[in-house]
Design a protein around this nucleic acid. Structure first.
Lengths: 260, 260
DNA sequence: GCCGCATGCCACATATTGCAACATCTGCTT
DNA sequence: AAGCAGATGTTGCAATATGTGGCATGCGGC
């Protein structure tokens, strides 16, 4: 406020401060900012409109919030594209026979696989996901092994060195793994170092490994390549990916299985 | 958590906070939220109605609960003697300071302890219980380690050799352990071999260990004595056990703490 | 002087909120 | 089982806050 009458570029100053407050608090109010800058509310509204058009914030009644502020909670994510996930689940379940040892990765798509496994007899389930463990241990004729470790709150699953360590003790018949994306050149990639490492090991360890990917993940780019993903038996999807991706992937090894 | 005071929160901010609390606690109360945001209860009701129409929560009398696409986890309110367990939880939480490493055994009474720990800062929670891990990993400022192993469906918790093995890797400040019974002659006993062994190790390993026992377990007889239970710092109960039991127990070492 | 632009002011439309009155529900006592 | 007290849900309405568009003003640059 000491810099009052510098008439040059007042608007950018306000824009900066608005974005700064937004980053700090998650939301800002119009009246509050108008008082702070000692300008009319219309002016702040025009500032916000300008910033909103550039995608830097979301307008809401009374102010603005961070653009794409919060990742939806896990319970909500599982409801997105529920139909597609269910079809992936059914296709995955068809690959499982009574008595097998099955690894289920964390993620909402693998949770759909878990649901689709209802009715199989005598399975042994191995998982890092708290939600999957809880669900499967309530099923009859299923033995569940929870791989321990530090819990990642955003996944509600075990990650880290303990989980990596535990994986190597098991002999897995079939593994269903999540992933961050199927890249345009037919590689399977992930968001985090730990996740990529864990999935890499499973792909190499399990007798057969499948990545489950819903169609929202086609062509996206995430930072980490999952090493040795080409050892996987296939990927299971809810809709056919672009032909170029299919060709690039299958040339490396994994087959594409389209649910339903 | 730091926000809320100076200005009334924008509607989306309230929505976020409502969903956040819902994910963390499983349910939220209207009056409680109205006080937190300093708005009328009608406003909160309108917020909840909006969220309910979008399928993000379930309205119930007095508040809202998680939208249940799947079966409900075993919740506190569905259990008997909820009041007694809550008082045990409060007494246990009073023994926990910010920053501690806390072990929580499986069981509904220890789940009550977990609920009572809400608000502590910087805890590290170590548990074998899927439900407790899921609940605690939704709390801010809490790190959760899940001890892996085979899942016992009736406990919804890890048991067996892997869990036993994992216990020894941790340095625990305070452990809260369940048990099957407090026998008439002041011994703490259990139902299963695995459970007794696990609790025995924890009692010996943790800097301080407490058994949490609601009054329905006084004077019962279960088959397995928990070895070295007398190394525990105490037992936490919701009502005073018969004087003879208290005397017999305290002569061996553990103190009796009555909640509330 | 004239133009462009940011700003403020006004009038009116819309949205949000709180209040009050009344209907229900819940838990507890009798 | 009945009934009561307190808490909670519902609804209509009024007050206030906010959004929108038009227009005037002032300032700096040409």
């Amino acid at each position: 406020m000491s810099d009052s009458q510098n008439h040059k570029a007042l608007a950018p100053r306000r824009h900066d401060e608005i974005l700064r407050r937004l980053a700090a608090d998650g939301s800002v109010g119009i009246t509050e900012l108008a008082a702070f800058f000692d300008v009319s509310r219309e002016t702040i509204r025009r500032d916000m409109k300008f910033l909103a058009e550039r995608g830097q914030l979301d307008l809401v009644h009374g102010g603005a919030t961070l653009f794409e502020a919060t990742e939806p909670a896990l319970t909500l994510r599982s409801q997105e594209n529920a139909g597609g996930k269910a079809s992936i689940g059914r296709a995955a379940a068809a690959l499982v026979e009574d008595g097998m040892v099955v690894f289920l990765d964390s993620g909402t798509t693998t949770l759909a696989v878990a649901h689709a496994l209802t009715g199989k007899q005598n399975l042994t389930i191995c998982t890092t996901s708290l939600t999957i463990a809880l669900h499967m241990c309530r099923q009859p004729h299923v033995r569940v092994h929870m791989l321990g470790g530090e819990i990642d709150p955003s996944e509600e699953a075990a990650v880290g060195i303990d989980a990596l360590d535990a994986i190597s003790r098991f002999r897995i018949d079939v593994a269903f793994l999540g992933a961050g994306a199927l890249s345009p050149d037919g590689e399977i990639t992930d968001f985090t170092r730990n996740g990529a490492e864990q999935r890499s090991r499973m792909a190499a360890t399990a007798a057969r490994a499948y990545f489950v990917l819903d169609s929202s993940k086609f062509g996206r780019l995430t930072p980490l390549r999952i090493q040795r993903f080409e050892l996987a038996a296939g990927i299971i999807v809810d809709a056919p990916p672009p032909a170029a991706m299919v060709e690039a992937l299958e040339r490396k090894g994994p087959k594409v299985i389209v649910g339903e």
